[in-house]
C-alpha cells in the first residue's frame, strides 16, 4: 500500500450502510486537553486536543513515530513505566477525572482501562489461568465465579467454541489469532470501561484479522475502544471516528467516513490515499 502508485482518491469501500458508522449521538468519555508529552527532553506529543466518545471505536492512524501509541499509553498510564517519560502540560480526563491527579492510582486506573498489545502476549500459563489472572490478583478465588467469568470472557472474545475443551492447555498452544483473542478475553474479564488496542492485528493474517475486527464490532456495545493501527483499511472498516497524527501533532479528527472520503486537511488526504507514510 505504501509503495503502490497512489490513486487520486483512496478507494476504501465504505458503504453508506456500514455498521462502522453508528447513528445517534454519543456522549464524550475521554477528554484530552492541550497535551504536551516528553520522553526526557524530546517532545513526542504537541498540544493534543481530543474528545473520545463513549462506547464507540476510535482509530488512531499515522506513520510510525507519530505519537499515536504514546497517546494511547497515556490513557492507562503505561508510560509511567518508562524512565523520563512525562507530561509537561495539559490533561487527560476520563469522566471528568484527571488521570494525573494525585489521588488517581495507576493500578486502579488500569483495572478500568484495559490494553491489548501489538505482540500477543498470553502468559505461559493455561488458557483458564490467563483469563482469571486479572481477577485473581484482585483477590477473587471463588471457583464458580471464575468459571463463569472464563466462559463469559471467552464467549465475548469469540473464542469459547474453539477452546472450551482445552481450557487447561497452555495459552501458547493457540494460533497467533487465537492468542490475540485470548488477550482480548483476558482484558474483558476484568470488565474495564475502555479497551486500548495497540496495533492488535499487525502480526495476524487476514483471516485472523477479520475475526478480531468482527470482535471489535461486538465489543463496542459494551466497551469504549481505542485502536491504533497502521492499516487504513482496518481503521475504515471498524472505527466510528478516526484521528490522524503526524509528527506528534493531531492533524485531523473526524468521523471515519469524512476522514477517508472527504478529508479536510491535505496531509490527511495524502496519507489516507497512500501518497506517503
Amino acid at each position: 500500500m505504501e509503495t503502490s502508485a497512489a490513486p487520486a482518491k483512496f478507494s476504501v469501500n465504505v458503504p453508506a450502510s456500514s455498521s462502522a458508522i453508528t447513528p445517534g449521538t454519543a456522549s464524550t468519555l475521554i477528554e484530552i486537553e492541550n497535551l504536551d508529552f516528553y520522553y526526557d527532553s524530546k517532545q513526542a506529543l504537541f498540544d493534543i486536543n481530543l474528545k473520545l466518545d463513549d462506547r464507540r471505536v476510535t482509530a488512531f492512524i499515522g506513520p510510525s513515530g507519530c505519537g499515536k501509541s504514546t497517546l494511547l499509553r497515556c490513557l492507562n498510564r503505561m508510560n509511567d513505566l518508562i524512565d523520563g517519560a512525562h507530561i509537561k502540560r495539559g490533561s487527560l480526563k476520563i469522566r471528568g477525572v484527571d488521570l494525573h491527579r494525585k489521588d488517581v492510582d495507576a493500578i486502579e486506573l488500569r483495572k478500568r482501562v484495559g490494553m491489548v498489545f501489538q505482540k500477543s502476549n498470553p502468559f505461559p500459563k493455561s488458557i483458564y489461568e490467563n483469563i482469571t489472572y486479572g481477577l485473581r490478583i484482585q483477590g477473587v478465588n471463588n471457583k464458580a465465579r471464575l468459571d463463569e467469568v472464563v466462559e463469559k470472557s471467552l464467549r465475548g472474545a469469540a473464542l469459547w467454541d474453539e477452546v472450551k475443551d482445552r481450557l487447561h492447555e497452555s495459552g501458547l498452544s493457540l494460533s497467533g489469532g487465537q492468542q490475540q483473542r485470548l488477550c482480548i478475553a483476558r482484558t474483558i474479564a476484568v470488565e474495564p470501561e475502555v479497551i486500548l488496542m495497540d496495533e492488535p492485528c499487525s502480526a495476524l493474517d487476514p483471516i485472523a484479522t477479520a475475526k478480531v475486527e468482527e470482535l471489535i464490532h461486538e465489543l463496542k456495545k459494551q466497551f469504549t475502544i481505542i485502536i491504533v493501527t497502521h492499516s487504513m483499511q482496518q481503521a475504515a472498516r471498524c472505527s466510528d471516528k478516526t484521528a490522524f497524527f503526524y509528527m506528534g501533532k493531531l492533524i485531523e479528527y473526524d468521523d471515519t467516513r469524512t476522514i477517508f472520503m472527504n478529508p479536510g486537511n491535505p496531509q490527511t488526504e495524502a496519507y489516507v490515499s497512500g501518497r506517503f507514510g
Binding site: R110, P122, F123, Q138
Partner: peptide, 14 residues
Amino acid sequence: PKGFREGSLALGAT
C-alpha cells in the same frame, strides 16, 4: 519477555 510484565500491569496488577 517485557510483554508478560506489561500484560500483567495492564490488567491492574501491582
